[in-house]
Amino acid sequence: MGAKAPKATYVYCAVQALRKPSLGRAPSGPPGLGAHRLLDAGHGLWLVVADAPPARFDEATIQRGLHDLKWLSRCAVAHEAVVESFVRARAVVPMKLFTIFESDSRALAEIARQRRQLDRSIQHVAGGREFGVRIRAVPDPVTRPSRPRRKIETGASYLAAKKQARDTTRERAERGRARVERAFTALAGLSVDVRRHPPPPGGAQSTRLLLDAAFLVRNPAAARFRTATRQLARDLRGDGYGVEVTGPWPPYNFIDS
């Protein structure tokens, strides 16, 4: 049944494991996709895939869907949840959302073509989980230089007060930058690999983002890494810096294509 309807192959991730992975843990994927299946790519590598009915997953439909955040979010969260369910394997290589091939054999052929690179990536990320860390200056009225209560009488004293406020802010930013660099170095020391994202367009100035980085951490160090980020968050909070940690993620940032 359904033999006439062509089906494309949606790929969630590649999983390396000594034994064939179980699909039992995996939650359901993006709406409209078929049940999860495994494709044996040989030498302990499996692709986690699903049938993608072209009516719902052709290029035009997906392009339209990109503008519908509700749909896009459901797909993204479901995709990530499926990938996430395989993280206990020796290595999981997440695919980008909407990685779709014409058929199983086309997906396998592509894997075979990139196998050498893929194996290098697998070796690199094996046993590692990714943590994201962002540090930003939080505008904080308490630590902001207080405005003099008295009415400023002269233009000169007004300008002097303004300059002092500006200098204080600048010094704080300089100190902050140095502290953030030290924090980055400390966290990097607990990691196997690091990806530091460049400041967003518009400049760090406008976003107050001092650090946006992903850390690949292997298990014995993971607990220490978490402790270090918590300590960091406590230390920096008093100085008006927010530390945001996400993860552990599958190693999205550490697969080289």
Partner: peptide
């Protein structure tokens, strides 16, 4: 964050679609 990860990262294969 999920969107950021699944849209931007984790690309080894490029799908045909």
């Amino acid at each position: 964050d999920v969107l950021d990860h699944v849209l931007n990262q984790g690309i080894v294969l490029s799908g045909e679609i």
